[in-house]
């Protein structure tokens, strides 16, 4: 068993403190009774009660959740197809272009993705609103799903699928009966990731949204632009909770590997 040196331990402790303290501070401040954010006035759930009365904010939250459900589902289907195509179909015409588009949209600044999608919608005179944001989020999130599922597909070899094909299964049946169960945890993790991405996005939604589709991040942004607000601490704490649970669930799912478990039984 290896032992951590004092230096390694220190790096880990400081690193995790840096990553987590700001979130902890935010959650603590959301329970601050004082209306001045920086002055501590004792514990209170006042700002959470205040939120319940803020109808536009609640509307925005529901729009964001609906949006995340729609775009995560579409992104998971498209992203899984892309991952299968990239890892299982050998070389096909335009394979590297598909890979290039996926990696480029992962790293390209949001502001470019947002602007270019908006200009497409304008060029084809499509009215902007809920569905244009959904298309934009699907496009971004499917690339994240593709990378997550692809990592899983590379992880296990093709023997199982080849065995199924040798036994006479059609490619479609092989996919449904063999490949899909094996990659399901990664597919589910990809869905949750896409959900979190959509719930969180400000820049792309700002470009592609229209009347009646103001998402939660757009509302939060316009509220905090000019400074911190106690209600926003409460909204943000709730979002941290929701997204945090989704991501922990996703990572547990990604670890769950039916293939490995079955192998261990032999």
């Amino acid at each position: 068993m290896r032992k951590l040196s004092a230096f390694n331990l220190m790096a880990l402790l400081l690193g995790f403190a840096f990553l987590y303290l700001p979130i902890v501070i935010l959650v603590i401040y959301s329970f601050n009774a004082s209306s001045l954010v920086a002055v501590w006035g004792g514990w209170s759930t006042h700002w959470y009660a205040e939120l319940a009365k803020d109808a536009p904010l609640i509307d925005a939250a529901f729009i964001s959740i609906r949006l995340a459900l729609v775009s995560a589902t579409a992104a998971t289907i498209l992203g899984t197809c892309a991952a299968v195509a990239l890892t299982r179909y050998g070389r096909f015409h335009g394979r590297s272009l598909l890979g290039a588009m996926i990696y480029a949209s992962l790293v390209l600044p949001d502001i470019i993705t947002g602007l270019s999608l908006l200009l497409v919608f304008v060029a084809f005179s499509i009215d902007r609103g809920f569905w244009t944001v959904a298309v934009a989020h699907t496009t971004l999130a499917m690339c994240f799903v593709a990378v997550v599922v692809q990592a899983r597909l590379i992880d296990f070899d093709m023997e199982l699928e080849e065995a199924a094909m040798d036994l006479g299964a059609t490619p479609l049946r092989t996919f449904v009966a063999v490949t899909l169960p094996l990659i399901l945890p990664a597919v589910a993790a990809g869905w949750l990731l896409a959900f979190a991405l959509s719930l969180d996005d400000l820049v792309i939604a700002s470009f592609t949204t229209g009347p009646g589709a103001t998402t939660l991040p757009i509302r939060i942004y316009s509220a905090v632009r000019l400074g911190v607000k106690p209600e926003m601490n409460a909204v943000c704490s709730i979002m941290v909770g929701v997204v945090g649970i989704a991501v922990i669930a996703a990572s547990l799912l990604a670890k769950f590997n039916p293939a490995r478990r079955k192998r261990a039984q032999f």
Partner: peptide, 13 residues
Amino acid sequence: FTAFLIRIYAWMD
């Protein structure tokens, strides 16, 4: 994955 905008907002605090 816990909300990018919020983590920046935390630093404003």
